[in-house]
């Protein structure tokens, strides 16, 4: 048994000692991979792969010479790497500022306008932490999907998408950038809207109002009650009713069922929403308690 164990370890070790190549994965979001950054940043024999590495730039938008903004129209490789290839974008050795400088010299515009001073910039992230310029993936991302790229740091958010109630990000229907711009925005939490609610209303405009009867916390922020990434309570709720509602309401009847862990109409079915189903607001003249 011990011999077998040793042999297995040895086999693994021998394999590990072999020369490695750049780990290239073809973009295919249908693959059942949950977004782990499965590509260690280290490439063992970097010189052996340099030709292949360089050639991949031709699959990227950076290689068009007809676009006068691209590096290939302004000095080829030297435009980004310097005349003597001084900058090799070695994440381990360079500072983020130095790594970002060639990129920002062209890309401090458009969706990157808020990069300087953004949370990611201030946290010392470099463009090459998420992007690989020598590849053909959409937006030159380092991995196949945004969930892999973003999830490699935001492990908690990635786990949220596995919960029973979640936005369809792991299914490939939505992407992180449908709601967030990782380069910074005028909104909070790098949201694409100027406010949390503005972002949500892009897809849920029916909840925008104005309504005759408004529910205060809903108007202020959807995340007062919802966790948009994922939750164990449908639909994306931070807690289950009636507990969630009782964080703000203890009225004529809302506490009775809860106080004895009793099953009744206040806690079963949809709990408070059995009756108060118009909780986002209503235009019904009889909607003062959000039932109509």
């Amino acid at each position: 048994m011990r011999q077998w164990l040793i042999l297995i370890v040895a086999a693994v070790a021998l394999a590990t000692a072999g020369p490695a190549t750049v780990w290239a994965i073809e973009a295919d979001p249908e693959r059942p991979i949950r977004g782990v950054d499965k590509i260690p940043e280290v490439v063992v024999d970097r010189t052996a792969q340099i030709e292949e590495h360089v050639q991949r730039i031709f699959n990227s938008p950076h290689a068009f010479t007809a676009d006068e903004r691209t590096p290939f129209s302004q000095g080829m490789c030297n435009a980004c790497h310097g005349p003597g290839m001084e900058t090799l974008f070695n994440i381990e050795k360079e500072s983020p500022e130095r790594l970002n400088q060639p990129c920002l010299s062209c890309h401090e515009e458009g969706a990157r306008r808020h990069w300087k001073g953004s949370t990611h910039e201030f946290s010392g992230l470099a463009c090459v932490n998420c992007h690989a310029m020598h590849n053909e993936r959409p937006r030159l991302l380092k991995a196949d999907t945004q969930m892999e790229v973003c999830g490699s740091c935001h492990l908690d958010r990635r786990a949220d998408f596995g919960k029973p109630s979640h936005h369809p990000v792991p299914e490939g229907i939505m992407e992180c950038t449908d709601c967030h711009n990782p380069h910074g925005t005028p909104g909070p939490n790098k949201l694409v809207g100027h406010t949390i609610n503005e972002t949500c209303f892009n897809c849920h405009a029916e909840k925008r109002g104005p309504f005759l009867w408004e529910h205060n916390p809903v108007r202020e922020s959807c995340v007062t009650c919802h966790d948009p990434h994922g939750s164990i309570h449908r639909p994306l709720l931070q807690a289950r009713s009636p507990g969630l509602c009782q964080q703000c309401h203890l009225g004529t009847h809302s506490d009775v069922g809860l106080s004895a862990a009793r099953m009744d109409f206040r806690v079963q079915g949809r709990s408070c929403l059995n009756c108060h189903s118009q909780i986002h607001g209503t235009n019904h003249p009889r909607g003062h308690v959000f039932k109509e």
């Binding site: 590990t16 280290v42 970097r46 030709e51 360089v54 490789c77 070695n90 050795k93």
Partner: peptide, 26 residues
């Protein structure tokens, strides 16, 4: 096997030289 020579031990000069050659080629 378990303690391979770290990749980053490879001098950047070699990589730089190879990159320059590749850049000249393209």
């Amino acid at each position: 096997g378990l303690i391979p020579v770290p990749a980053w031990a490879q001098p950047d000069d070699e990589v730089r030289e190879a990159a320059q050659e590749a850049a000249a080629a393209i």
